[in-house]
Nucleic acid binder design. Structure first.
Lengths: 187, 187
DNA sequence: CGAATGATTTGATTATTGTCAAAAAATAAT
DNA sequence: ATTATTTTTTGACAATAATCAAATCATTCG
């Protein structure tokens, strides 16, 4: 639980009471490899945090799998559009390793935001962080070559190559697996 | 002021008191064409709303202008990273027509968020909208061809082509002006 | 172990867009 | 109105990555 609380604290300060209420709202699951946390065409009810393991967030577009995000140890992750709009989406969340996952239900989080002003602020800051990340990622997709994006990914997550199949990494980078394979052969 | 209030209301409900406080916090400027609302390497102190006119948000990257956003009538716009982190950025905001602009100062907005829980929630919802938009834009950049992106832009903002130079539109779409010119010649 | 299945690499070709250069068109200035 | 300046278009070519196909390489299972 240690790292999780650190991540919660890093987002924004909370009163003791609010923090206790927030921490209490998370459910915990231990799931095997190849488990679906969110299935296709369902509403994303939870915002997740991965304590241990790997989860892949992906969807089908014109019959092809598009990997939107790969969440490693100690990351928050969720299906942004489906979660906020509480509408079904084609987004799928699937574990690539046996994982320990925490999740908070949309209704519970909203209730906490209603009840505690500082949780509302905390969540506002969390979303702000997401938005900033999204801006950086957009810049990366638009202006960096496939090779630069791959090198950055390696620098940020050195273990990812050993733990995630090439095809998923390629699709996360927005390139084909053939292109990624050619980039790797250059080393 | 009519449309502005509609946009404020559309984001989220506010009590009469909060709404009055929020509305009171906006400053109003009438600026000529070619006016800089935010200069390079300065901190973005304001979140803006454009009542009338056009503003372009851009920055220099490797000596080239990159247009991050083009704000037309009745849109909110701001330099996301600089505003939230209150750090100087290379982002420039510049009017392309004589414009009427509203702006709220970062400190004032934060103070209102502290004071009124429902303004905090309102702002959280506003940022959520921004994040969702950002996700859709990322998808568009990654998977749509330049032509598809141009057609979408035309559908959403039919007047933009008459009001904004081609080179800015191209840079907003993430393509060169030569490519955009070739797309247009196909019609 | 050895076949079968799945993942990755390699090869050949094509499509899209970028780059650099110059021409043409549009706009502004004298 | 004519010149000057800016903007847009066109042309030739190069670069990046996609597509389709086949060949390796690795892993799993009987």
């Amino acid at each position: 639980m240690e790292n999780f609380i650190k991540r919660i604290d890093a987002i924004g300060e909370l009163s003791a009471e609010s923090k206790a209420a927030l921490l209490d709202a998370w459910e915990e699951w231990s799931v095997p490899k190849d488990h679906f946390l969110v299935r296709e065409n369902s509403v994303a009810h939870h915002l997740f945090y991965i304590k241990k393991g790997i989860a892949r967030i992906y969807y089908f577009k014109n019959g092809k799998e598009i990997t939107e995000w790969i969440a490693l140890d100690n990351q928050f992750f969720f299906s942004i559009i489906s979660f906020f709009e509480q509408k079904p989406s084609n987004l799928i969340i699937h574990t690539l390793e046996a994982s320990e996952v925490l999740g908070i239900h949309y209704d519970k989080l909203m209730a906490l935001c209603d009840q505690y002003h500082d949780i509302e602020r905390w969540f506002r800051k969390a979303i702000t962080g997401s938005l900033i990340l999204s801006q950086y990622r957009m810049d990366s997709i638009q202006f960096e070559t496939a090779q630069q994006r791959y090198e950055k990914l390696l620098a940020n997550y050195p273990t990812i190559v050993q733990r995630v199949p090439l095809s998923y990494i390629a699709s996360f980078l927005g390139i084909t697996q053939e292109t990624l394979s050619r980039i790797r052969s250059q080393y």
